[in-house]
């Protein structure tokens, strides 16, 4: 076995220490710090990105809350507006209705009064005519000429009874 020849020990060990020293110095002072730096930079970047994302998310959350609040307010305001409008329209309608019904009542009353007047006038005419007719009939039948007043009173009393019956 060539490995067991003591003559090959020293040259190998000598170069091993020199060359391992070279690779150690290279890694310790150049490669490892460089890799560490790159990894740390990446870690920092990831952490800062995550932080940023968290911040943006909080902002979005705030915006959403504000939007929801505004929406609620607008909805409440709209409800109030609708209620107020409804009240106003209701009041208007009522006023208009009252006015109209008052005017109609007035017209109806006027018409009724007119009818009553016409009726009274017609009854009066009928009464006078009835008294005249009575007088004429009595004159032609009995030849008696009665006092106009007596006939009128008699006709009037009859009429008043009739009128009460009609009205009552």
């Amino acid at each position: 076995m060539p490995q067991l020849d003591p003559a090959v020990f020293l040259p190998q060990i000598f170069w091993l220490f020199i060359l391992f020293g070279v690779v150690y110095l290279f890694i310790a002072h150049s490669a490892a710090p460089k890799i560490t730096e790159v990894l740390e930079r990446r870690q920092d970047r990831i952490a800062s990105d995550l932080q940023e994302a968290e911040k943006l998310q909080a902002q979005a959350e705030d915006a959403r809350a504000a939007y929801e609040k505004a929406l609620d307010e607008a909805r409440a305001k709209a409800t109030l507006t609708v209620a107020a409008k409804r009240e106003a329209i209701k009041a208007d309608v009522e006023a208009e209705y009252n006015k109209l019904s008052a005017s109609l009542n007035k017209d109806a009353a006027a018409a009724e009064a007119k009818i009553a007047a016409a009726k009274d006038k017609a009854l009066d005419e009928v009464r006078i005519m009835a008294a005249d007719v009575c007088k004429d009939i009595i004159l032609s039948v009995s030849g008696l000429e009665l006092d106009q007043k007596v006939i009128s009173a008699s006709v009037d009393s009859k009429f008043n009874v009739m009128k009460e019956t009609a009205n009552g």
Partner: peptide, 18 residues
């Protein structure tokens, strides 16, 4: 004897490769 041998050559090669 600290001769540069084939063993040392491959050590150097490994170091270079790393």
């Amino acid at each position: 004897n600290i001769s540069f041998t084939n063993s040392a050559f491959f050590m150097a090669l490994s170091v270079m490769a790393v």
